[in-house]
Design a protein around this nucleic acid. Structure first.
Length: 626
RNA sequence: GUGCCCGUAGCUCAACUGGAUAGAGCGUCGGCCUCCGAAGCCGAAGGUUGCAGGUUCGACUCCUGCCGGGCACGCCA
């Protein structure tokens, strides 16, 4: 019989069982050596800890009885060192093989996991991954709609980094095009008239200027046409004509400004730069406050692609990839190789201008050709799905998505997420229908968090409480977002995210803080650190389920990385915190006799480290106490 | 009209991507602090997984058709 030795790096029982059953299948069924062992965690404790579900598909494949197949597997597989002996009673239902791990084996595997890396093996091969996780627009206040992308994107980026991949974050700043030119033109005019001081600009000023500029340029020609059609009086018509003339004037001025910007004409460019500085300062401050790892070095604005567009589109046209259509230039994508997309991707307008798709194609090109990305992840609103599929298809058709080093196609993925809804199920807005400023949202979360912390822990000083409330609030806010399946819309609720109980950020922090408290108490009572080198032992059921949960950590990170779903890690941490809470309830640590105490201290320490690591991977700050 | 996403306990969400009796939290009811932090633990009640078919040993999961909701569909970004 083939006996695969597992080595200490493999702390995950599922991996070990996989290898053992793989060997058993090869030995028992030479005709089907490639069959999947199908090892899964058991749902309920009655069915053991793990189960092998390979017998059913295997039986079908070789046209045999599943229970007979299971019997043969049970007789061939060698689990003597890790599991309780398998018998016919281990076979249940149509052919499930139930496995109960031996406590000593769990202790050994935990020991293997108890290393700085917590059992997480570095990815092989390590990939280069670009994560597009933010796209603020210059001159616009950040609002709720800007929350999910950096929160989810940063969690994904951190997960990939934790697994040893090389991650390049990208903040795809909307800093170019006619809208920005409109604001620039307006500010230039206001400054010239002395109505605004450019040195003292705030984002609120800019936000107002943005709206005014939009309105100014759009005062609408549609309205004039309607007025003429409905035969309004000459006076009304004259007023409207005047408005439209004004709008046209503002519009033309914006276009001229755009041209001056493209030429980097100093006076105009300086104003644009000022707008960028003011906006980005607020954006990056917000990221810092949210514990989102996005800094100035991750900024890759649309403006940085501006000079590449003309030559790129010319090339696409020359190669016949882009073709004229009704005066515009499009890339057709109806071929299955490019996604079978009926709607062609528009890359140049009739007036010669470019679109955001054009910039996004240039971005794929830079990310793969220059940064050598193996994988590019777009953490963007689900509504952009068609747009992104078009960009991906066009980039693939152009050959821009082939990694120049590996010659393999880069994986282009849209990690789509749903909208933030209010408790009424409609898009989250203020009572007056305005969009909620992100800064206000964060502040309100932290304020509520402070009230909660102060009522729970009145002994804390004001400063301490404030510092803790900040971290707890940020964790609550981000966790509420991360713990749902990204794809779905989610309902925003201050009350729920900061709830004292249930699946929330504070619950996880509370579990961690309680463990840390044990160690503080231990130090106070003069308990030495002999536990660090003690032998782990798993005896009580609560210890066992905690151990089983701990051992799932590395594979959970792997799942998050492949599916780009941080909520799996949230669920894991919630289960881990739950398993710890039960352990905490049933298994006294400091009061136990020394040998037991030491083993439990080590188990607590490992739990704390996994919890802390998981929280860090999600980008959630954790306090020492709360 | 076409395409994408979603529909699971009263509410908010899971379900290891085809596995056993669909799980948590909130809310409701009932227990547990002279004992390491009760933001905790234990128990009870609550389901025809939108509907109808199909695929198979086995379906919340895959396929088809309906119903209901959201979103997107060339010269805005």
């Amino acid at each position: 019989m083939i006996h695969l030795r597992w080595w200490p790096m493999h702390a995950d029982p599922q991996d070990v069982l996989y290898a053992r059953f793989k060997a058993a299948i090869a030995a028992a069924f030479p005709d089907a050596p490639d069959a999947d062992p199908m090892i899964a965690e058991s749902r309920s404790a009655e069915h053991g800890d793990y189960q092998c579900n390979a017998a059913m598909p295997l039986a079908k494949r070789i046209k045999s009885n599943p229970r007979e197949v299971a019997k043969l597997l049970v007789s061939k597989v060698d689990l003597s060192d890790i599991a309780e002996p398998l018998t016919e009673a281990s076979i249940a239902g149509p052919g499930f093989i139930n496995i109960r791990l031996r406590p000593e084996a769990l202790a050994t595997m935990l020991g293997a996991m108890d290393a700085p890396g917590l059992g997480v093996a570095p990815a092989a091969p390590a990939l280069r991954v670009v994560v597009d996780l933010m796209g603020v627009n210059l001159s616009k206040q950040m609002h709720v709609g800007h929350l999910r992308s950096p929160v989810i994107g940063d969690a994904i980026a951190r997960t990939l980094e934790r697994l040893g991949h090389s991650v390049i974050r990208q903040n795809h700043v909307g800093d170019w095009g006619l809208p920005i030119a409109m604001v620039t033109a307006r500010l230039q005019r206001l400054a010239a008239m002395g109505k605004i001081n450019l040195d003292r600009l705030t984002l609120d000023d800019l936000d107002r200027a943005y709206r005014d500029a939009q309105a100014e340029c759009q005062r609408d020609s549609a309205g004039l046409a309607a007025a003429q059609r409905f035969g309004l009086g000459p006076k009304a018509l004259a007023e409207l004509e005047e408005q439209v003339a004004g709008a046209t004037e503002a519009f033309l001025s914006a276009r001229e400004t755009l041209i001056r910007l493209q030429q980097k004409e100093p006076a105009t460019f300086a104003i644009w730069q000022r707008i960028a500085d003011v906006t980005m300062k607020v954006c990056l401050d917000t990221c810092r406050r949210l514990h989102v790892n996005v800094t100035s070095e991750h900024s890759a604005g649309e403006s940085s692609y501006a000079d590449e567009l003309t030559p790129m589109v010319a090339e696409l046209q020359a190669r016949g990839i882009a073709e004229p259509d009704q005066g515009a230039l499009v890339v057709r994508l109806d071929d299955p190789a490019y996604g079978s997309i009926k709607e062609p991707c528009l890359v140049r307008k009739t007036d010669g201008g470019y679109l955001y798709a054009t910039t996004d194609i240039a971005a794929v090109r830079r990310r793969v050709q220059k940064f050598h990305a193996d994988r590019v992840i777009y953490v963007i609103d689900a509504r952009q799905n068609l747009h992104l599929r078009q960009v991906f298809g066009a980039s693939q058709r152009a050959g821009y998505a082939i990694n120049p080093v590996t010659k393999a196609p880069a994986l282009l993925e849209h990690a789509a997420f749903g909208s933030v809804l209010g408790e009424d199920g409609k898009p989250f807005k203020t009572r007056s229908g305005e969009s909620v400023k992100l800064a206000d949202l964060i502040q309100e979360t932290v304020d509520r968090s402070r009230a909660a912390v102060m009522s729970r822990s009145p002994e804390l000083s004001g400063d301490e409480a404030a510092a803790i409330a900040e971290g707890v609030g940020i964790t609550a806010l981000k966790y509420a977002d991360l713990c749902n399946d990204r794809q779905r819309d989610y309902v925003f609720s201050f009350d729920r995210m900061l709830a004292f109980e249930g699946n929330t950020g504070p619950y996880l922090l509370y579990a961690l803080v309680r463990i840390r408290s044990i160690f503080r108490k231990a130090a106070e009572r003069g308990v030495d650190d002999a536990w660090m080198s003690t032998t782990l032992s798993i005896v009580e059921p609560a210890e066992k389920s905690l151990a089983l949960r701990l051992l799932k950590y590395p594979s959970t990170l792997g799942q998050v990385a492949t599916h780009l779903e941080p909520h799996r890690l949230c669920q894991y941490l919630y289960d881990l915190a739950g398993a710890f809470s039960v352990f905490f309830d049933r298994c006294p640590v400091l009061q136990a006799e020394p040998a037991v105490r030491e083993a439990r201290l080590r188990l607590c320490d490992l739990t704390a480290r996994v919890l802390a690591d998981g929280l860090a991977v999600l980008g959630l700050p954790a306090p020492e106490r709360m």
